[in-house]
Amino acid sequence: MTEAVRRDARDDLFIDDAEDEDTQANKYMFFRIAGESYGIGIRHILEIIELQRISQVPDMPAYVKGVINLRGKVIPVVDLRLRFGLPERAYDDRTCIVVADISGATIGFIVDTVEEVIEIPEAQVEEAPRFRSQSGKDRYISGMGKVGEDVKILLDVEALVRDDDARAIAEAGREP
């Protein structure tokens, strides 16, 4: 069943490759973390792979699980659960790595399970409400998408990697 879902998601992705940017713009790939559905703009997504052996990297925040060998390319993987400050959960056979391209950098996100690709017209996307008491994860929300009666959370992936501790570490570590 996991396989089927994943294949569906992939098929959609590959069809989209041939389409132009405009049609990609309103499509989101949704995945589930702790019972909640999150979407990432499909133009960022390179592929979805099964969980694989992760090599732990020293000196990293807990949500940076390490690096994987993606066909000869070493890419960092981030556990989105931990990134959002949610409790850790053992990985199972539905756990996936969503490989995304974020302004040229390839990064993998570990998610509980991958759901589907949905097109949400711009008119159906509303700005995320901002609360004073906002916890960490809400800062990465780019908007709320309405799909029929459902409201889905859309993530700003760039903010996800830009505005965080790892980035700060990276900046600090870089030579002047």
């Binding site: 052996r53 090599s55 990297v57 020293p58 000196d59 990293m60 940076v64 690096v67 060998n69 000869g72 070493v74 890419i75 960092p76 950098a105 390839t106 990064i107 990697v161 790892a166 980035r167 570490i169 990276a170 900046e171 600090a172 570590g173 870089r174 030579e175």
Partner: peptide
């Protein structure tokens, strides 16, 4: 190593071994 990870003290990079 990915730029996302930045420079890590004591490491100069990484490598993929024969077994992946």
């Amino acid at each position: 190593l990915s730029e996302y990870l930045g420079k890590i003290d004591g490491l100069s990079g990484c490598s993929i071994l024969g077994d992946g």
